[in-house]
Design a protein around this nucleic acid. Structure first.
Length: 118
RNA sequence: UGAGUAUGAAAGACAAUCGCUGAUGCUUUGAAGCAUUUGAGGAAAGUCCGGGCUCCAUAGGGCAGUGUGCUGGAUAACGUCCAGCGAGGGUGACCUCAGGGAAAGUGCUAUAGAGAUUUAAACCGCCUGCUUUGUGGCAGGUAAGGGUGGAAAGGUGCGGUAAGAGCGCACCAGCGUCCGGGCGAUCGGACGGCUUGGUAAACCCCACAUGGAGCAAGACCAAAUAGGGAAGGGAUGAGGCGGCUCGCGGAACCUUCCGGGUUGUGUCGCUUGAGUCGGCAGGUAACUGCCGAUCCAGAUAAAUGAUUGUCGCUGCGCAGGCAGAACAAAACUCGGCUUAUUGAGUACUCAUGGA
RNA sequence: GUGCCCGUGGCCCAGUGGAUAGGGCGUUAGCCUCCGGAGCUGAAAGCGUGGGUUCGACUCCCACCGGGCACA
């Protein structure tokens, strides 16, 4: 239920480009959310952290926080969305609880929640 | 106690829950699921050097270019390391040094100064002579003193002289020859003649080293279809060996343009290696040899995270408790260097006080 | 991964080992004008950082820091 195997993660450059170009974007202080209606059997998710955030260690940490937020709350989401989460500068030294809250508020704003959650 | 020098272990631990990479086993048409196990560093970093490995001749010759530069050793190799020598710095522990050649040649040496590199040089001064009413002028001698400079061509002292001068002598520095110690850099001593600035991180000379590219190397598989037209070159030797040349090699194809068409973030390379740990032996040491044990990440928008609890460390607080814990993540691999950073301990030095 | 290049006042650039580090634009003070512009006169402000070579370094060498380019 909380699984997040490799095939559910965006890996190819083309997929990233597609979500960036055609997805709707929502943002707050800690992250940016791109949402795009998927055409595959299940939704995929991607995580990104730009070079502005710092060195490799901090970028990795931001991406892992984003992944945890998605992984633990994915059952709330509708099944047919490709999402892309991008960390922002304020997320660098933030705890998980803050990140999760920011993620949930954005998800509500973007209206990609599933039927049960509503 | 304070200040400092060198070296330098380790990089919080355990448990629970949810997840991820790889491997193995089972289930399974496939996809996947379950179980067990595994999983970042001392710098993984910067990419400053050097190897392995792969391809291009089997990596060859010469020139050019580039790099290194006290001696001896270590090493696969190095611009690294170890032990010494010399120079410089520090009261000292100790630290720093691209540290060969300036008598092969060329260049540069600003400003200042009379004079800056070859018969060195006379501005002030000193001395002698001539002259003048003269405090002066002229001629000559002189590098001891002053002044300039980073540097004035050996330094100090005594003798000597009209005044002076390696002009003579002693010591010191430098140069040459010889003797002795040391594998050697070099050190010590004797003798000789009496002295030839600096700069080679300026060109250069000498010695040594150096073929080029890089895992996006390279190999394989799959998918796609049609290999079409034009021009030029090719056994009188194409393309290739990324500077030039010699040489090698031996192709029916090669280059350019026009038109058409397809395609993977595929598999291998990819982790057993100058590996790691322990013992013994050799060596001042770097390191080497032998024996035994052991397998310890292989990702590709890139795996180690999140949450909670207990204990340990540091700070604050009477206490419950609260806050904090660096720098930073493999990308073919290994040896160094450099930089970032928390830092227990060990050895030593100096100063002050006490016994 | 490899090979290169650059860093000079606020901005864009010059600069043979010896200059007071130069030019343009800008800033600023004064003059001029009824006011502004233009013009004239003057001023401030700089060699990325740290070492080394040299008598002397923006320049030569080394190590860092920051930025950029090319190729596969």
């Amino acid at each position: 239920m909380f699984n997040l195997p490799k095939r559910r993660i965006l890996r190819k450059n083309k997929e990233f480009q597609k979500v960036y170009r055609y997805g709707r974007s929502y943002a707050n202080r800690y992250l940016v959310l791109y949402a795009f209606t998927a055409n595959g059997p299940e939704g995929k998710v991607g995580f990104a952290a730009g070079k502005k955030l710092g060195n490799a260690v901090t970028r990795n940490r931001v991406k892992r926080l984003l992944r945890e937020s998605y992984r633990l709350n994915q059952q709330l989401l509708g099944p047919k969305y490709d999402l892309l989460l991008v960390g922002r500068k304020a997320a660098v030294d933030v705890k998980y609880a803050v990140m999760e809250k920011a993620f949930l508020s954005l998800v509500r704003k973007a209206r990609v929640l599933g039927q049960e959650a509503k």
